[in-house]
Nucleic acid binder design. Structure first.
Lengths: 129, 129
DNA sequence: GCTTGACTTTGAGTTAAGTCAAAGTGCTAT
DNA sequence: ATAGCACTTTGACTTAACTCAAAGTCAAGC
């Protein structure tokens, strides 16, 4: 699979994919004889993994380090696991905070809805914000 | 409450609070005779709200617009509600994606744990990454 | 009375993560 | 055979959201 197709598949610019490879978070993709990237299943999985993790807030730096360890082989399994555990914990905390904020939003929306109703009756006296 | 105390309370630089005010997402804080900001309860609530929303990914722009509407008075209630609903939906989606990624991480960590065990028995043959 | 923290304006610098442009080369599918 | 992707390197640019620096003033508390 060529870079343009991958780009469409994941809706991410080719330029970004090349940038990821250059930066070291996407391990070097196989090339055809004439030097064109030919993404295989494993590459696609890696791309998906990177995009998901980036989306969840993992930094380029962390992913770079993780992939460096992947490349380095079996000796690094524990280190890799530790990275993932750390990021998992961060993500869990982020989700918790998000949940809290989501509830805050829901509550506010609810208050606004009441205010709209009252307003329709020209009775509004709620302190909104 | 002076800006330095607020800064400590929320663990955010004074400079950022001033920046928020300047930018228009923190509505003008009352001043003492000599021009020093004196945060009251309402200001503190606003600061907390802003920080939470920023943390959840709402942009400065959106918060600015929202606060502009707050300032503009009761006529803008429906618009404000609409903003909050839109951001709520975005946040819900983000949380879902995060959950998915979290599960991915958990699964990977689990696989790594198995691999560590196998490795201890010098039997490792799992395809890890 | 001196240190500390508050204020102002203006403008520059920073960080992360892309994103684009130029310039030049080369394959491949219609 | 020509349009459309693909490649490279180098380097500049962008965006969001701060963050800091300078320069100068002012007020409060020990």
């Amino acid at each position: 699979m060529k870079i343009g197709e991958v780009s469409k598949l994941f809706d991410v610019p080719s330029e970004t994919l090349r940038y990821y490879e250059r930066a070291g978070l996407l391990l070097p993709v196989n090339r055809t004889e004439n030097g064109i990237r030919d993404f295989d299943e494993r590459d696609l999985h890696r791309v998906e993994f990177i995009l998901r993790m980036r989306n969840a807030g993992l930094s380029i730096e962390v992913l770079k380090e993780y992939m460096r360890l992947v490349e380095a082989g079996d000796e690094t399994i524990t280190q890799r696991k530790d990275i993932l555990i750390k990021e998992k914990e961060k993500l869990e905390q982020r989700i918790e905070e998000f949940q809290f904020t989501l509830n805050m939003l829901k509550y506010k929306i609810c208050v606004y809805e009441k205010a709209v109703l009252l307003k329709e009756k020209e009775l509004s006296e709620i302190d909104l914000e």
